[in-house]
Design a protein around this nucleic acid. Structure first.
Length: 891
DNA sequence: TAAGGTGAAGTTTTT
DNA sequence: CTTCACCTTA
């Protein structure tokens, strides 16, 4: 479709919602299924539900009325969601276009699309309303842009644009942009928008706390600026539709008629704005009352608890239950996996579902198909320490006598931790007695904070162990990609001043600060885009001849490209723009080590544009889908944060860094108090439940944080694990190397089961011994108490007078000298947010000593030595480094 | 304009 | 200890 904004409002056949559309519509797959399903009231089970367990089946077949599916980890949540949609379609309850299905991530949306496709055939193509909250928000706004004060070709700004814009505003206010960082304010705005606040709604305290009390004015100024730019930020994609629905009940009513089934994935992650958005769509107006069920302010505290409101809700539910066109909402989630409170998610939304939707059916999925009983037992026992849960207990029906317990390991410091994990991985890779090997693809290391990854990467590079890092800088966040996108944006949307400013002097054209400022001021004064202002100004005497000529050239370029927009293939146009603007030349002339990579990325960008029909649809997509696909071809261990691991599963999982202060993270405790701690515990729960068969948890006694060695104490979560399912592993050689006295002094033999230690009994000393008690959910457990004692004792012992802060210096230089040359600085995360350390021990290196080579990060250098696939290279600039040969190319 | 020095800050992340 | 942004200097 060349113009995606020009669709008819109702895309279902006939323009009117039909309660029972003919089964044949929407594709042969559906028709066939539907026929099968319609054999009669007691017709045989359609085969798509036959593989489901009773609870799953109930969740699929309870199509009418509000439904909450509490789906524990590994219980087939996605399967239920997709089968439910397939069921609704196959039984002719709705057309694809009458189903609204929302997810949080593009990845989840994509997966759902694919899986529904498998169930139902090509009809998915006709599910226009399956997507993320944000992408559906865009769709609504494009259709009704004028109702939200925008034009339908509005731009979506990403975080970087937003920060630059705010910085301008802060400076325009005459404020010090160091004291009031734009980034902080951008975060505040995002927080407000997550709650659905417009500038007038924000709490007085919030408004005062920023910019000498000018917070509210600044927020308003920001919104005004967005409007003139014909742009909105991510938060607006949620807030503007809400406002539009409130102000235009007729539009909302159209969508009420349209959406007959609403499905929400990961409901525990919804923030207040998303919640309001859903309620507006899911609740029909009651006959005489206001459109918005909770009145103007939808904050959690002042709704649902009011008795009058509750009974009104009940009445409403009773009415709508009898109504033929009721809207059926089904939310799927797991309160125990809510880990995004820090960015505005309200666990409360899921806890309150039954109040919000009276008469709701609540279905629990507790039958786990993923993990062993030991892992499930561990997870359940751990999460039981949280209060305020809806309560679920995972179980498995597949007893596995061979399953190993969850292993808890101790290490002296993070380096040893990485080394030991590396060893374990190498052991797992060797064929077992049945000759089976464990793929690296089935292993993952899940860390709390990204700085932990570094140690593992360094170690794995040394070992030549393949790994991949998920997360990190992404393709579309790279400078050259953003520059290129800015060119495209100005061509497609000439009013996009932010994009214009970004590239007007990139490459350098002698258009310095003064010229830009003049241009900016004139544009603001006349209320026109900067490009228009530039067009005018090059005809006057306001600029000096040099910049004037240069600017004229820029303007002419853009005008020419704009003319080409509609009659030139967009990939071709992209290349023309790069050439004619001098952008490619800029990087070709750049001597820095990154330049070739950047040119490569630009080519990749053009390649990826081929998938889209037009420059416009490409831009639209990129604004929302900021992820580049990962290549999973290589067999490699995955390293990522616990947050990004949600929804994934691995045969073997390593969870390093279970220490107080890191996990639970100190900042969560400081800022979030008890609920912060509980969120950390849920994060631990997510981590544990990622494992299918093997789980290894690690903690260390010493960790270097901000370059400063700190002695650490084991995480309280370790004391919350159930003894029956956990083994403490002595880590043998690597741990034993420090000598007995030292071992005791450093932390008292965690991990040395049965060894005497001076601090009293730890539960880890007694694992497996009969009669050792269970652990209460206070933190006064033996291990915890011992750890507390240990903290002070160890500190006093080593440093005599240091107070019990749990922080001590262990000496800088010593560990550096142990590391040896070439260690500790091998950076590998440079390409595509992911780089795989290639290991080719069997194949000899393609290089020989003395070869001239190029490395993405370090630039040019000469090969000094070769061991297997590991090269020692003297880099011209970066000095001597050891790298794998896969990272360098011959010159 | 580019390179080098200085200083502050340093969870988690999607859209 | 690192990274990154910004400011100064040639």
């Amino acid at each position: 479709m060349s113009d995606p904004f020009d669709l008819p409002f109702f895309d279902e056949p006939g323009g009117e919602p039909a309660p029972n559309p003919p089964a044949r519509k929407g594709g042969g797959g559906i028709a066939a299924r539907a026929m099968a399903a319609r054999g009669g009231p007691q017709a045989q089970t359609p085969d798509y539900v036959s593989g489901l367990n009773p609870e799953q089946r109930q969740a699929v077949e309870t199509t009418e009325g509000p439904v909450l599916v509490l789906a524990g980890a590994g219980t087939g949540k996605t399967r239920v969601l997709t089968t439910r949609i397939a069921h609704i379609l196959a039984t002719g309850r709705a057309y694809p276009s009458q189903i609204l299905a929302v997810t949080f991530t593009n990845k989840a949306a994509r997966e759902m699309k694919t899986r529904i496709g498998v169930l139902v055939g090509e009809a998915v193509e006709g599910m226009p309303w399956l997507g993320t909250f944000h992408s559906i928000g865009v769709k609504l706004l494009r259709r009704h842009a004028e109702l939200a004060g925008l034009r339908s070709n509005f731009t979506i700004l990403d975080t970087d644009d937003v920060i630059r814009l705010i910085k301008q505003l802060i400076q325009a206010e005459g404020l010090d942009d160091k004291r009031w960082p734009a980034r902080t304010f951008a975060n505040m705005i995002d927080g407000w928008k997550n709650k659905g606040y417009a500038p007038k709604d924000i709490p007085e305290g919030d408004a005062r706390s920023f910019a000498n009390g000018k917070g509210r004015e600044l927020f308003q100024a920001y919104q005004d600026r967005l409007k003139t730019l014909n742009a909105c930020d991510f938060g607006d994609l949620l807030c503007l539709p809400i406002r539009m629905f409130r102000e235009h009940p007729d539009v909302l009513a159209e969508y009420h008629r349209k959406f007959r089934y609403i499905l929400v994935d990961e409901y525990q992650d919804t923030n207040t704005a998303q919640y309001m958005w859903l309620r507006l769509l899911a609740q029909r107006p009651r006959s005489r009352q206001d459109m918005t069920p909770q009145g103007g302010d939808n904050r959690p505290s002042d709704r649902s608890d009011a008795p009058a409101q509750a009974s009104a809700d009940r009445r409403d539910a009773a009415v709508s239950a009898n109504e033929s066109q009721q809207i059926n909402i089904c939310c799927v989630g797991d309160d125990d996996q809510s880990i995004y409170g820090w960015r505005g998610a309200e666990v409360d939304n899921i806890l309150r579902f039954e109040k919000d939707f009276p008469g709701a059916t609540v279905i629990r999925l507790e039958r786990n198909y993923r993990s062993t009983a030991h892992i499930l037992g561990t997870a359940s026992h751990l999460i039981a320490h949280n209060e305020g849960r809806l309560g679920k207990t995972l179980f498995t029906e597949h007893a596995d006598p061979d399953a190993s317990k969850v292993m808890v390991h101790a290490a002296w410091d993070s380096e040893e931790e990485a080394r030991a994990v590396g060893e374990t991985i190498e052991q797992l890779q060797r064929p077992d007695r049945d000759g089976r090997t464990h793929n690296l693809n089935d292993m993952a290391i899940l860390v709390r904070a990204s700085f932990q990854m570094r140690e593992f990467e360094d170690r794995f590079v040394t070992l030549g162990l393949n790994y991949r890092v998920i997360g990190g800088p992404r393709f579309y966040e790279r400078q050259e990609i953003r520059d290129a996108m800015a060119y495209f944006r100005v061509v497609a949307q000439p009013a996009d001043d932010l994009a214009f400013e970004r590239i007007v002097n990139t490459p350098k054209r002698g258009l310095g600060e003064t010229t830009i400022r003049t241009l900016h001021d004139i544009a603001r004064a006349r209320g026109v885009p900067m490009l228009t202002a530039a067009e005018d100004i090059v005809e006057t005497e306001e600029l000096k001849p040099k910049p004037r000529a240069s600017l004229r050239n820029v303007v002419e370029n853009f005008r020419r490209w704009q003319k080409m927009l509609d009659n030139t293939p967009h990939t071709e146009l992209a290349e023309i723009i790069f050439e004619e603007s001098g952008y490619t030349d800029m990087w070709k002339n750049d001597r820095s080590a990154e330049a070739p990579g950047r040119l490569e990325n630009l080519k990749e960008l053009v390649r990826s544009m081929e998938e889209y029909e037009s420059l416009r649809s490409f831009l639209e997509h990129v604004a929302l889908v900021m992820d580049a696909e990962q290549n999973a071809e290589q067999d490699a261990v995955t390293i990522m944060t616990l947050h990004s691991a949600k929804g994934l599963e691995y045969e073997t999982v390593f969870l390093p860094g279970w220490e107080e202060g890191l996990f639970p993270h100190q900042r969560s405790l400081d800022e979030g108090g008890r609920s912060g701690l509980e969120e950390e515990r849920r994060l631990a729960y997510v981590g544990v439940t990622r494992a299918k068969r093997n789980l290894h948890i690690w903690f260390v006694s010493n960790r270097r944080i901000h370059g400063l060695w700190q002695s650490t104490i084991p995480s309280r979560f370790l004391d919350e694990l159930p003894e029956a399912h956990v083994d403490v592993q002595e880590s043998g050689s690597s741990y034993g190397g420090y000598g007995g006295a030292f071992a005791q002094g450093r932390g008292g033999g965690y991990g040395n089961a049965g060894r005497q230690n001076p601090y009293g009994a730890s539960r880890f000393d007694n694992v497996g011994s009969p009669g050792s008690g269970s652990f209460s959910n206070t933190y006064a457990t033996p291990g915890w108490a011992r750890a507390q004692a240990n903290k002070t004792a160890a500190t006093d012992r080593n440093w005599g007078t240091r107070s019990g802060q749990g922080i001590e210096r262990i000496g800088y230089g010593e560990s550096d000298s142990q590391r040896g040359a070439g260690r500790g600085s091998v950076k590998t995360r440079t390409i595509e947010g992911e780089l795989i350390a290639k290991s080719t021990m069997d194949t000899p290196s393609a290089f020989s000593v003395g070869d001239r080579v190029f490395h993405q990060k370090f630039g040019n250098g000469n090969v000094a030595a070769i061991e297997g696939n590991k090269l020692t290279i003297d880099f011209d600039k970066a000095g001597q480094k050891r790298v794998l040969d896969g990272f360098v190319t011959g010159v």
